[in-house]
Each structure stands twice: as structure tokens, then as C-alpha cells.
Design a protein around this nucleic acid. Structure first.
Lengths: 149, 149
DNA sequence: TTCAATGCAAAGTGTTTGCAAGCTA
DNA sequence: TAGCTTGCAAACACTTTGCATTGAA
């Protein structure tokens, strides 16, 4: 995990290097994700901004554009699951994979060195130079199992 | 892997047991997925039907309804990854994961017992009853590496 | 001063629903 | 025949786009 200010500085650097403008809106969106403990949909980000930064009067289109931009420059990542649509998270969290409850949508993060090692091995065997990966295990979480039975 | 006819019989059994009607449309949709080698979106299923069963004049709404029904009765599963939306696959296929070349789009399928075992272990530790998973390794395939260098 | 970025609303997507007609049991 | 299913089109929800305006460099 990295300090928020460092990531914001990184955003400033990227924007400058690309000859684009630095805007408060992109910073707000990035900040929301840096401080979020869970994966957020575009709409959730939008609602959080209205709640935490009511003065900003941001539009939903801008949120979508900011999310797209931040994903392009690799500051955030998205995963998509079930009916909740695309969910975003900051890239400044330790690497992890996801366990996803297909009933309630809960996402649990995990990390397993053994799997990471095997992935490298598989990539080598297939002569791929792997740049990233994503893994999702779908199932029913313990709470939902109780409710169902 | 199971023979198509057995799965179709299973569908007939389920439909009867639920007091519903057996229709050609549901059978066609199921058959498309049984014979598909990849995960298909609703629209891809629809297009395949128009190609392989042009006489059926099926509507896209029926495809969605059939997919929903087949998923409810556990003959097929859906997962969502990337930007293509919900993708379906039959529950009667051998399992595999994907290596994806981000340059040319080539997809290589693989399967690794060690990873599968670790996944089970992780699921147990988190008290999830896992029903499916998807893993993608993104990178550059050997041909594209040659072209780039 | 320039032109990227924004907010708004309209236009696109993909998916679901209402309904009259069709078809299975 | 009864009522589940269908095809069609309209309705929906989510996301993107066009455009005039704003604002960062």
C-alpha cells in the first residue's frame, strides 16, 4: 500500500507527460478509489462523490470518463461480475485475486504464492511473456450457504 | 464430458418435473452451448443459432429467457470477465483456463492440477462453496514477441 | 489564448418485460 | 383445451457521445 499523496503525484506526472490537463474531478475519483475498501461500480463512485465532495457537482459522464482514463494509465483496474456491472479498484493495493459470492456479490481478496509460481511456469511453457493476470473463484459464501439451507 | 443426448434428456426430465413445456428453442440454446468450445455471450448464442438453425426464427428475448432458465436449473453457468458482458458455458465440459495474448488476441487454453488444488484449499479456508472459476494470464505470445523485437 | 475536460442531455448498448398469438401436454 | 412459451416491440438500465461552456497551462 502506498500513501495517497504519492499516487496523486503520479497522476499529476502522467497527465503532464501526456500534455493533458490536471483536473480536480480526476483527482476526486482516484481518491475515492484509494480510500475505498471494496470494489466500486461507476455509480457507487458517483454517489460517494456526491456524499463526500458535494461541492464538486460532478456529472456521471465525467465519472465514467475519469474511470476510463485512470484505467488506461494503469492507476486503477476493473473487474466485472454478475449483474452489478464493472467494478473498479485502485492498483495501489497488494496484488491479490478474488473470491466472489455469486449470491450476494461479496468479494473476498486473497493471495497465494504457490499459484503465482505455477502461473509463471505455465506462461514459460507456452512461451508467453505474461504482464498481468486475473483470477476469480465463483461460489457461495458461508453466510449465503446458511441462508439457503 | 457427457454425450449431448444425455444432457438433452436431463433437460426434458427437469422440464417435466417442473410441470413446464418442452420447447425446441430451449433445446437449441442448450445444444449450441454443448457444442461450443468457448464461453458465449447471449448475442453470440443468438448469432450461432441463426447460422446453424436458420429455420428456427428464434428471437433474442427467447435466447435470454432460455439462458436464464438453463442457468437456473444448473445445466449451464455464466461468468463475466473483460468487457464482453455475461458469458455462458455448459456445465458438461472439461475445465480449462486461458492464456491471452494482448497483442494479437490469441487465446491458449490450459489446465493445471496444482492450481486447481490450491484453489480448492483457498475456497475451503474462506468457507466458500466454489462452483466455478476463471483465470486469465495476459501477456505477449511467442510470435508477437518475435515481431516486436 | 488555447484546447482538453466538463456537465448536460441525447443517443447507444445490452437486457428485460408486456402482450397477443402459437404450441405443448 | 389450458396455460406455458414465443416473437415482436417497447421499456429499461447502464454507458458513451455530441456539444456548448468552463477552466488549466
Amino acid at each position: 500500500m502506498v500513501r495517497s499523496e504519492e499516487v496523486i503525484d503520479e497522476l499529476k506526472r502522467i497527465v503532464k507527460q501526456k500534455g493533458l490537463k490536471y483536473t480536480e474531478q480526476r483527482e476526486i475519483v482516484l481518491n475515492i478509489l484509494l480510500n475505498a475498501n471494496e470494489h466500486l461500480t461507476a455509480e457507487e463512485v458517483y454517489n460517494l462523490i456526491k456524499e463526500k465532495n458535494p461541492e464538486s457537482n460532478i456529472g456521471i459522464a465525467t465519472v465514467y470518463r475519469a474511470l476510463g482514463f485512470l484505467e488506461d494509465v494503469n492507476l486503477i483496474t476493473s473487474i466485472t461480475f454478475g449483474t452489478d456491472g464493472k467494478k473498479y479498484e485502485s492498483n495501489f493495493k497488494d496484488h491479490h485475486d478474488h473470491l466472489i459470492c455469486t449470491n450476494c456479490g461479496k468479494i473476498v481478496e486473497f493471495m497465494d504464492d504457490e499459484i503465482e509460481k505455477r502461473q509463471d511456469k505455465i506462461a514459460k511453457k507456452n512461451k508467453f511473456r505474461v504482464t498481468s493476470h486475473s483470477m476469480q473463484l465463483y461460489g457461495i459464501c458461508s453466510e449465503c450457504q446458511k441462508k439457503q439451507s
